[in-house]
Design a protein around this nucleic acid. Structure first.
Lengths: 132, 132
DNA sequence: AGTTCGAATCGAATATTCTCGATTCGAGGA
DNA sequence: TCCTCGAATCGAGAATATTCGATTCGAACT
């Protein structure tokens, strides 16, 4: 919609310390103490993330934000959906902490909050491709 | 319910080749060609995985199966929900390829199909804990 | 001030998912 | 064979989520 200056990338916050911890030692293994009863709060946390990702339009939004931020109006074009629909999905993603916003004049730019979200999509894709 | 012999663990299939590929090089980074337009089939694949995980009872089932297989009746006790409810959730997880079954007499034992599912939960938990 | 544009939110119709009693099915016994 | 137990499935009501027109809000401009 506009060719104004963009913060192309590098502004997405790095993955959380916990996720970095997952990267040490045997890659992506034994991130948590293995045999530990899980709490309700942790289940709720996982649930809120998965609910935020369990929608086609929201997945498309995240995929579109892989290579950098986009404003809401650009996402409307990409999704080919009305403003209120896209706005609702963006609000859900923001509430879930998946995306962050930056305001510039009357435009609102969205970006991925944590690259761990993208790893999540990659893992899900690999998982779905492996069993068919 | 019963103290019959169990295949305690080691029977869950190893993560898919694609996921193993993700483990090489810089851990859990650049698993996919980076700048590549995603297809509808891939979105559908991601979506089916996330939809299967976007439910509290199903997450509890998966967490319960972390340290080995369990039969349906044991999961009914753990979830404290009626047989038909638990059975429905188990069917969904099986259809999504998240769990596999083994029949022994009149019992059906469930186990995690791919450890990548557990990594998915760990990542989601870390993500939800990082932004609060 | 008023106007316009982009975006957030409201609210109600629609669509999807969840729950769970009831039924069916299959594997062992008696 | 009949009976029982564990589990899969059906079906309908309840709960949740999605859609999107309409409204509101804020920033920029006149």
């Amino acid at each position: 919609m506009t060719d104004r200056a963009r913060i192309d990338d590098g502004t997405t916050e790095s993955a959380s310390k916990t996720i970095n911890r997952m990267s040490e030692g045997a890659c992506c293994e034994e991130a948590f103490p293995a045999n530990r009863r899980i709490s309700d709060e942790e289940i709720d946390g996982e649930l809120s993330v998965f609910k935020a990702l369990a929608n086609e339009k929201r997945l498309r939004i995240i995929e579109a934000l892989r290579d950098g931020e986009l404003c809401a109006c650009e996402l409307e074009t990409i999704l080919d959906a009305p403003q209120s629909t896209v706005g609702t999905h963006l609000s859900r993603l923001r509430e879930a902490g998946i995306v962050r916003t930056r305001k510039d004049g009357k435009w609102t730019y969205y970006r991925i909050a944590d690259t761990a979200s993208l790893q999540l999509l990659d893992l899900a894709r690999a998982l779905s491709e492996s069993d068919r």
